[in-house]
């Protein structure tokens, strides 16, 4: 039964995907990373160009296929036919035509392309733009809001209809920052600060992922981008700026102790409790956990954030995320339970 419904889903999503492809992104089914996107001004410009080129490509492909079909099925003979083919070796007009016609089509593609390049790579942005510093690590995303004193991991919130300016930093190797729904990707290159500037125009939760191969867990380097309403963003900022919640339950209180005493605190910041320390800088650090409980996902956004997944992750990070830098601490039983309870309480 289960497999049948799964198969239905396969077929259903497949057909839908085909329709999406055919109708250039007008479909409305579950494909959170689809690239015919219109979640921001950037995405709309790209999509518009994407559609134009797809149409030109389709026209040319159709012409080639029609000519090929005509050549094979209509304007040729088969083996055994007594007539010898004509020795037609060249035709200046024809050859000029198929040199000039593609050149014209290319002009129709190149001009909007260059205009879109200039539009999508502004060298200036308004002073009230919200700057988000994106730090790529092997294999998770850190988001800092320099003006707002917020740091978060795996999940980034931005308000709708404001200019958002992403600055891309890498501490280790080359990654690529990609949120299809809001526009294209940019590589995150160590020693170089790349930018993406966009104005989100739709609220919702969008999926992002590292797009440049970055080693063992490249596939497990995802993130979520939440576009809030202006009020929603204000509330989120206030909540994130607040100090961490005091643990109430006994289990969570015990968990706080474990967190402080176990190596967790070396790499993970919980404001007021622990801080990533330069002294123990091994070249990598873990996400800021001050408001960990408020996030939807964990471990590079590969799991939903719930106690069961968190316990599984802490127990053996390497097993569920190959190459993960977080060590196995050998916590089990009540210790593990209490630590999970504490972390989940950090709303």
């Amino acid at each position: 039964m289960r497999s049948v419904s799964r198969l239905n889903k396969f077929v259903g999503s497949g057909l839908l995907a085909a329709m999406v492809f055919a109708f250039f992104g007008c479909g409305n089914f579950n494909a959170p990373m689809q690239t015919f996107a219109s979640g921001s001004d950037l995405a709309k410009w790209i999509t518009s160009l994407y559609i134009q080129i797809t149409i030109w490509d389709s026209i040319v492909l159709a012409i080639v296929l029609i000519v090929l079909a005509l050549a094979i099925f209509v304007f040729s003979t088969r083996e055994g036919d007594p007539t010898e083919p004509h020795e037609h070796e060249s035709d200046l007009m024809l050859e000029l035509a198929w040199t000039i016609a593609p050149a014209l089509i290319l002009m129709f593609i190149t001009i909007p392309t260059v205009r879109t390049i200039m539009r999508t790579q502004p060298s200036k942005w308004p002073a009230n733009a919200i700057t988000v510093q994106v730090h790529a690590h092997q294999w998770w995303w850190e988001f800092d809001y320099p003006g707002l004193h917020i740091a978060t991991g795996d999940e980034v919130h931005i308000p709708i209809n404001r200019v958002i300016h992403f600055e891309l930093y890498s501490d280790d190797i080359i990654h690529s920052f990609w949120i299809p729904a809001l526009g294209g990707k940019r590589d995150v290159i160590p020693g170089q600060v790349n930018q993406i500037t966009l104005i989100p125009s739709v609220t919702g939760e969008f999926y992002g992922q590292c797009a440049e191969f970055c080693g063992l867990s490249h596939a497990n380097m995802r993130f979520r981008m939440v576009v809030d309403t202006a009020d929603g963003f204000k509330q989120w900022v206030a909540a994130q700026q607040a100090p961490p919640v005091e643990p109430q339950e006994a289990a969570a209180k015990n968990g706080e102790k474990i967190f402080k005493n176990a190596p967790c605190a070396i790499c993970h910041t919980v404001r007021g409790i622990s801080g990533f320390s330069k002294q123990y800088d091994y070249g990598f650090r873990g996400p800021d956990l001050t408001h960990f409980g408020s996030r939807g996902t964990l471990a590079g956004s590969i799991f939903d954030n719930n106690p069961k997944n968190l316990a599984m992750w802490i127990q053996d990070p390497e097993k569920v995320k190959p190459g993960a830098r977080m060590p196995t601490l050998g916590l089990r039983g009540t210790d593990l339970h209490d630590l999970v309870a504490y972390l989940e309480s950090l709303k």
């Binding site: 510093q133 730090h135 930093y169 501490d171 160590p190 020693g191 170089q192 600060v193 790349n194």
Partner: peptide, 8 residues
């Protein structure tokens, strides 16, 4: 122009 040698 877009380089930063200071790793933040």
């Amino acid at each position: 122009g877009v380089l930063s040698f200071v790793v933040p």
